[in-house]
């Protein structure tokens, strides 16, 4: 018997597998048993009602997708009245996700949705900060910290900071979020990218720029989890190109306590359930009795860092 449970601050998960924000919706419950997941993470909402970006909203690559959806949102009342009840009866912690145009609005929204049934709130800091010429909050350590402080000041619900990978030094942002009181870090959101249609000479996305996700990004985000794990002591939730149990274990070994599956949910609805079974079998095969023992358990490849590795880090 393998103990798959993990602890993200005060939130107990029966296993380390959950969907990434925006990659499941009500319809998913018509296909798979959400009750088997470690947590249910909801799509990001904003204080206002938004339609999202102009289509086309997705471009496809060999093992990745470029999405620009623009956070279509029905607002906080819809979340409380219509979305939360859908997920209330699975016996699984439900994590809301919020975004806003200012740190104050992040705080106000977090307070507003701190209802029974919301186990934690993810702060999606990858959106533009309207007070900083549209630069994403998550690209600046102080702006990230302001968002987290504003939320922590307004609610006792645990706050998970979902970092953007579009930064030079992710560890610096992670330390800022931790110092501001974040209960956990989700590493990370999507890599900014774009695609051009050579034949019609136009961008392939209505919004020109979008977020690259899918298996192709795994090495990049895995590296970031490794770097963040060395910089903070709060739990890390790995998120980037995870499609199966083996990917998930790689993230745990690199320093994550739990993982989020994203793009794969669009293609293989059974991926998360299969991964949970795979992780359990993996633990048994390796004589691991508690999955939490895997966190950061990657063995060093050399006794000392090579000069090149030191230079990179």
């Amino acid at each position: 018997m393998v103990d798959l449970s993990v602890q993200i601050g005060s939130v107990s998960l029966r296993n380390p597998v959950m969907p990434a924000s925006g990659t499941i919706a009500e319809g998913f419950a018509e296909i798979v048993d959400l009750g088997r997941l470690g947590a249910i993470v909801l799509k990001t909402i904003t204080p206002d009602i938004r339609q999202g970006t102009q289509p086309p909203r997705v471009a496809e690559f060999t093992d990745a997708t470029l999405f620009s959806i623009g956070i279509p949102s029905k607002g906080p009342d819809y979340l409380l009245d219509s979305t939360l009840p859908v997920y209330a009866d699975f016996g699984v912690p439900v994590v809301a996700s919020v975004s806003a145009d200012s740190a104050e609005d992040f705080g106000t929204l977090a307070a507003y949705i701190s209802a029974p049934g919301v186990a934690a709130i993810e702060a999606n800091v990858s959106c533009p900060n309207l007070r900083a010429h549209g630069q994403a909050f998550g690209m600046d350590p102080e702006a990230t910290a302001e968002v987290i402080r504003a939320m922590k000041a307004r609610t006792d619900t645990p706050i998970w900071a979902k970092l953007t990978p579009n930064v030079g030094d992710i560890a610096q942002i992670a330390r800022a979020a931790e110092a501001a009181g974040a209960d956990a870090l989700v590493v990370s959101n999507a890599l900014l990218g774009m695609a051009v249609d050579a034949e019609n000479m136009r961008p392939r996305l209505g919004n020109v720029i979008g977020g690259l996700t899918g298996n192709a990004v795994k090495p990049i985000i895995l590296r970031m989890v490794h770097q963040v794990a060395q910089a903070v002591s709060i739990p890390i939730i790995g998120c980037g190109g995870i499609a199966n149990g083996e990917d998930a274990v790689e993230y745990l070994l690199a320093g994550a306590t739990a993982v989020q599956f994203g793009t794969v949910n669009f293609i293989e609805p059974a991926a998360m359930e299969e991964a949970i079974a795979w992780i359990e079998a993996y633990c048994r095969r390796h004589g691991v009795t508690e999955v939490r023992a895997l966190t950061g358990a990657m063995s060093p490849r050399h006794d000392q860092k090579s000069p090149l590795q030191s230079a990179v880090l």
Binding site: A25, Q51, G52, P55, R57, V58, F67, I69, P72, F266
Partner: peptide, 27 residues
Amino acid sequence: EAFMGCGMGMCYACVLPVTAPSGETIF
């Protein structure tokens, strides 16, 4: 028809502009 991401209502990529009863265009 639309090019879809997931087909299951989750990714919101396949939106189509339609006319709401109010007359405004929504996705």
